[in-house]
């Protein structure tokens, strides 16, 4: 009356066909990678946010631009993204001053271009590996599904040889196959959530950077004009 089949997670995996096992292995590797990228991005973005807040505080706190520049070149390793942007802009500004460039527009354009270049490099660093998370989020369910479909195909093919078919004949095979889908979903769900969150965080950071760049070039422009 009771069909006694031993179903444990380990037996499910070890009894699966080679292809399903390969799919599971692939998904495990993908999941490991995506989780480590998730943690990496989490730490990197949090750090970038903190550094940005700190630099904004000291910048708008009325500190002298020259001292800020000195400080940023002194500890280049600890400097945050925003500090590096400022550093690039101010260095360009000083070069123009040294060369004795009179044209305000040329100086402002040069400063903006320098800051823009650094900004783009910073954004590239922040956005690195986000594409991987997006790919994992969209593809790994399909990979899992592929393993499942293959496993179920095998289960039903085995069923064809049995005259009196009962549910007990297919149940272990299907359970085996479904492990692949579960694994795919396990890899995909955190990746999607993390991708959305990181994309949002990076968007906010980039808005802060851009507005800072505008304001910084305004301040530098004003520094030129009174000197004439």
């Amino acid at each position: 009356m009771n069909v006694t089949t031993d179903i444990t997670l380990i037996s499910l995996v070890t009894n699966a066909s080679v292809l399903v096992q390969l799919v599971l292995l692939l998904l495990l590797i993908i999941s490991l990678m995506s989780w480590s990228y998730i943690f990496m991005k989490l730490l990197t973005i949090r750090r970038a946010r903190l550094e940005t807040a700190r630099f904004e505080d000291s910048f708008w706190g009325g500190a002298d631009l020259n001292t800020l520049y000195e400080r940023s070149s002194a500890n280049a390793v600890q400097a945050g993204a925003l500090e590096r942007i400022f550093h690039a802009g101010f260095r360009e500004f000083q070069r123009h001053l040294k060369n004795g460039t009179e044209d305000v527009t040329a100086v402002t354009n040069g400063v903006q271009r320098a800051m823009k270049a650094t900004y783009q490099r910073e954004m590239d660093t922040l956005e690195a590996h986000l594409a991987f998370l997006a790919t994992v989020g969209s593809v790994s369910p399909y990979v899992g599904l592929f393993g499942t479909v293959w496993g179920i195909m095998n289960a039903f093919r085995g069923l064809a040889n049995v005259g009196q078919a009962t549910l007990a004949h297919v149940a272990p095979g299907i359970a085996e196959a479904l492990v692949a889908t579960a694994m795919g979903l396990f890899a995909a769900i955190p990746a999607v959530v993390a991708y959305n969150r990181f994309a949002h965080d990076i968007d906010r950071l980039s808005i802060r950077f851009e507005s800072f760049m505008e304001e910084c070039s305004n301040i530098l422009q004003r520094q030129i004009q009174p000197g004439r």
């Binding site: 480590s36 390793v77 660093t125 690195a128």
Partner: peptide, 23 residues
Amino acid sequence: MNRVNIQSEHRAQAFVLAAGVHL
């Protein structure tokens, strides 16, 4: 470049955390 440093610094930490999540 220092930003590379930051990333690689986080990398080991992140991998350990990911392995922990899976375990």
